[in-house]
């Protein structure tokens, strides 16, 4: 533990990579705002917040998971499974809607717990475990629903996904709360510091007496729970339940987290970085669309920004290390 603390990054308000991101984001915002007068409006920004909530919620625990050197590829499928079970239990089991929602969140939690259990108890590598549950959970969603969609929820159900509270999209409040909670946990608690320790050197963390397995089990379970929450919001936003929901969202989430400077090797990363990564991707997509760039070209830009930003940070880091 002492060794890791000695080498842990100094607690600057923003890490170098985050400064790179803030600069890129500021430039992008300035350019896009001059190109389209409809981009930098409160209305548009709030709306973008609504659209990025699901990815954002899942990105929070994903940051934790990646900080420990793990990964969770099953989140999109977990989301699909939760969405299907929300609709299915409401329609076919006759659950009241509230119970169906709780059930869906529970299913997400269990799905995440299963990942965590196999990863910690049976030492299945996270990538493999979550690739197999990526297929398994999606398969269950398709098998259970037989790809029938569930529609016709009562009006009140749509408040979360389509409504507003105090002029701000309902789900955005949830995202803000989640960001604050996860940021505080990661930066200010022993639990958060243990995540860095595990990611930096798992064996070392174990020897210094950290309950590594319990911590990992907790974050994978949290990942499942947040995927369930995202499923609920998503169903409420698009007013229907389909088994293909959330397909490929894991790549969007991982792109945001990695762009935010969390190292895929573990040990480095912040929630602030992830939020910056999220904002950058969402606003780039939106801004480019508003200035008339087509969707396919936007995907290319996002891919290039992802590689370049990591590249810049790597160079900066190496120069600092050489300078020392």
């Amino acid at each position: 533990m002492s060794a890791t603390e000695a080498r842990a990054p100094k607690r600057l308000p923003l890490a170098p990579h985050e400064i790179v991101l803030v600069v890129i984001l500021a430039i992008a915002l300035a350019v896009l705002a001059t190109l389209s007068d409809r981009f930098f409006t409160l209305d548009n920004l709030l709306n973008q917040g609504r659209l990025m909530t699901e990815v954002g919620l899942i990105a929070m625990p994903m940051t934790f998971v990646i900080v420990t050197g793990g990964i969770d590829l099953s989140v999109g499928s977990t989301m699909g499974l939760c969405a299907i079970l929300l609709g299915y239990s409401w329609k076919n089991f006759g659950f009241p809607l509230e119970l169906a929602i709780v059930f869906a969140l529970l299913v997400g939690t269990v799905a995440g717990f299963i990942n965590g259990w196999f990863i910690t108890r049976l030492k299945v590598p996270p990538l493999i475990m979550t690739i197999s549950t990526l297929a398994l959970y999606r398969g269950l969603a398709e098998g259970i629903s037989q790809a029938h969609s569930v529609r016709g929820y009562p009006e009140g159900f749509y408040l979360l996904g389509q409504g507003e509270v105090w002029g701000v999209p309902t789900q955005l409040w949830l995202l803000v709360v989640a960001i604050v909670i996860f940021a505080v946990i990661l930066a200010r608690t022993t639990f958060g510091r243990s995540l860095y320790a595990i990611g930096y050197n798992e064996t070392g963390a174990r020897f210094s007496g950290l309950p590594v397995d319990r911590i990992k089990l907790a974050i994978y379970t949290a990942s499942g729970l947040m995927a369930g929450l995202a499923a609920w919001i998503f169903v409420s936003r698009v007013s229907t339940t389909r088994s293909d929901m959330g397909t490929g969202i894991e790549l969007d989430v991982i792109a945001a987290v990695v762009l935010g400077g969390t190292s895929i090797f573990g040990g480095v990363g912040t929630i602030a970085g992830t939020v910056l990564g999220l904002l950058l991707i969402q606003l780039l997509k939106d801004g480019l669309a508003l200035t008339g760039v087509k969707g396919d070209a936007t995907i290319v830009v996002i891919g290039a920004v992802l590689i370049l930003s990591i590249l810049i940070t790597n160079f900066a880091q190496r120069r600092r290390e050489q300078g020392r």
Partner: peptide
């Protein structure tokens, strides 16, 4: 050489190729 994790490089490339092909 630049020590970018392969998952990041190939994730970026996935985007570039996919969007580029349709463009």
């Amino acid at each position: 050489y630049l020590r970018i994790p392969s998952i990041v490089v190939t994730l970026g490339m996935l985007s570039i190729l996919k969007g580029g092909l349709i463009s």
